[in-house]
């Protein structure tokens, strides 16, 4: 518990954390409003699918938040003092996952809920769809933030890890459409998971699976953290 409080203290005492968290909160609302006012929603689309389905871009700052929390220790040279204070090391990684995942879960839930409500009020002619999948969407966001922590821990460089994690997020969506029969690959990442769950709310299990896979990414990262010299 002390270590979670310590990691939360690290998080809240840097401005970059709040900028990134603010982006995760506001981007879904901005995107949903954009979709609504440009009239780009097909007439048979629900508000959930049309507006929330496009807020996936906010997954990128969610991942970056995780990266900054982990790789920022190397860029900011605090890794030495941190590991001297917690020499068992793995509790630091676990606490970072809790702080990144927890803060993003709360903020993504609020941001997407506001986006949904705003889009629904701007698009009175469309069917709204259920609000329940928003929870699954927020869980995928939280998983993505934890993935950022894992990649940041493994690569130890903010710039490198931001590039890598953005690639991991974007590549399935970019390559999926051009690989023909392997299109289902596009559904495997967090982007695909969010889009599936808003298109077909029954597919929350897929979203949960992607989130769990993201959580599990801390295992190889933890192995590297324990094995390497600081």
């Amino acid at each position: 518990m002390n270590i979670i409080i310590s990691e939360w203290t690290k998080f809240r005492t840097l401005r970059s954390s709040w900028w990134t968290l603010g982006t995760v909160a506001l981007l879904p609302v901005a995107v949903a409003v954009l979709v609504a006012v440009t009239g780009s929603l097909a007439s048979n689309d629900t508000v959930l699918a049309g507006a929330i389905g496009n807020t996936v871009v906010a997954l990128v700052p969610a991942a970056i938040l995780g990266v900054l929390l982990a790789a920022g220790e190397h860029t900011g040279a605090t890794m030495g003092p941190t590991i001297v204070a917690v020499p068992r090391r793995w509790p630091v990684l676990a606490a970072k996952a809790v702080v990144a995942g927890g803060s993003v879960l709360a903020v993504a839930l609020a941001g997407n809920l506001v986006a949904f409500v705003v889009a629904a009020s701007l698009l009175p002619d469309h069917e709204t769809g259920e609000a329940a999948p928003l929870v699954a969407v927020a869980i995928v966001y939280a998983g993505t933030a934890v993935l950022g922590v894992a990649v940041g821990t493994a690569l130890r460089s903010s710039a490198g890890a931001v590039t890598a994690v953005t690639g991991v997020l974007l590549l399935p969506a970019l390559l999926g459409p051009i690989v023909g029969r392997l299109r289902w690959l596009a559904d495997l990442g967090p982007f695909g998971a969010v889009q599936q769950v808003v298109l077909e709310p029954g597919r929350w299990l897929t979203a949960a699976g992607v989130a769990v896979a993201c959580l599990l990414s801390v295992v190889p990262a933890g192995w590297l953290l324990l094995r390497r010299d600081v």
Binding site: K10, T13, L14, R15, S16, G72, G76, A77, T78, G80, P81, V84
Partner: peptide, 13 residues
């Protein structure tokens, strides 16, 4: 312990 002198994040007080 004191190892490297500059081991704080420049953006933190």
């Amino acid at each position: 312990a004191l190892l490297e002198a500059r081991s704080s994040h420049p953006g933190r007080t």
